[in-house]
């Protein structure tokens, strides 16, 4: 999902841990206890979580870009205010998540620098462009819908600070999905052109959204340990299926056609979808999606342009501190 790069291979750092402590740790996980920052944890657990939470944070921050693209062009003041609030929420989610990641021992500056250097990943979905206003509706409806599917189980993740951040995020995320669906509904009840615009957006976003859940279970390399550690409670394919089953009736209500002609409902009521083009997913993760370079360039520019603000705020705090100390000495 927001942490897809975890699915790439990484077998280089399996430290040999104190077996007794590792067993004790696993027993706590099995008893559904929460792990807190100062508790002992295997180095691999710390590393996996630092990567997962920071990638999730980067995704929230980069995720502001495709939507920010439409703030000045929202069709009404009501839509503009809602979109602004949503983008502001994404920023807040990024900050909750950086704070949670920091409890594992890396500073926010290190985490952000890794993303800006292209060493840390963010969700593949934000490397697609937002070409029309209907894309904003589709992102809220589907991208945030998929994110909710993924994040609700994370509220019960074994790592306390991550679980608590997810609870806050999930509370806010449901507004995002509803505002997106409302945009789609308005377009679908509008003119022929508006409905065509909605269909076009769905056509372009459907497959990338299904890819958000990550590679199929047979090839997902991090799932086993993540499941054992109760970081992950459902597999990629399970979550993807849940999402598809929830979304098909919503698309039907809108009168839109999901761009998968082979899709059919099986005896269990699940919607079976056609094979996903994992080559496209690999390309986007590798940096070759439609907007990878643009997104990273925008983040770097924002970081560089904001440098003087950070420096000035630090200098001001230093000045005040030394003045207070001088006064106290008098």
């Amino acid at each position: 999902m927001y942490t897809q790069a975890l699915n790439s291979s990484d077998n280089d750092d399996r430290h040999v841990e104190d077996a007794a402590r590792a067993a004790q740790f696993q027993a706590r996980i099995d008893a559904d206890e929460r792990i807190e920052p100062n508790d002992w944890m295997p180095a691999a657990y710390r590393k996996t979580l630092t990567r997962q939470i920071s990638q999730h944070a980067h995704s929230e921050i980069v995720g502001m870009l495709p939507e920010g693209n439409w703030i000045t062009r929202a069709p009404t003041l009501r839509r503009k205010a809602a979109l602004l609030a949503k983008v502001q929420d994404e920023c807040g989610h990024g900050l909750y998540l950086y704070a949670a990641a920091e409890t594992l021992g890396s500073s926010r500056e290190e985490l952000v620098d890794a993303m800006l250097a292209g060493k840390a990943k963010y969700s593949s979905i934000f490397n697609y462009p937002t070409l029309t206003w209907a894309d904003i509706g589709t992102i809220g409806w589907l991208v945030d819908g998929a994110a909710i599917m993924n994040q609700i189980p994370l509220c019960r993740c074994s790592y306390g600070p991550y679980a608590r951040a997810m609870i806050r995020v999930c509370k806010e995320e449901s507004f995002h999905q509803r505002q997106g669906f409302e945009i789609m509904l308005t377009l679908c009840r509008g003119t022929e052109d508006q409905k065509a615009m909605a269909q076009n957006a769905l056509d372009r976003w459907w497959w990338p959204v299904l890819m958000m859940f990550g590679p199929p279970d047979q090839v997902s390399q991090h799932s086993d340990t993540s499941t054992k550690w109760k970081i992950k409670r459902f597999s990629n394919d399970e979550l993807r299926q849940k999402f598809v089953d929830a979304t098909v009736p919503q698309a039907q209500f809108l009168g839109l056609t999901i761009p998968d002609l082979g899709m059919k409902q099986n005896a269990n009521g699940n919607w079976e979808y056609s094979p996903i083009d994992w080559e496209e997913f690999k390309q986007v993760l590798a940096g070759n999606g439609p907007c990878n370079r643009e997104r990273l360039a925008a983040r770097r520019k924002a970081h560089d342009d904001g440098a003087w603000v950070r420096e000035a705020a630090m200098a001001y705090a230093e000045k005040r501190k030394s003045r207070q100390m001088a006064q106290a000495a008098e």
Binding site: Q88, D89, G92, Y96, A99, A165, R168, E172, A313, Y316
Partner: peptide, 23 residues
């Protein structure tokens, strides 16, 4: 409710308002 980064107390309060009390 959580934590945040800020250079001084005034900015910390404003950031807390924006990050933790939007609703």
């Amino acid at each position: 409710v959580g934590s945040l980064h800020a250079t001084d107390a005034t900015l910390a309060l404003q950031a807390a308002r924006d990050i933790y009390t939007r609703r």
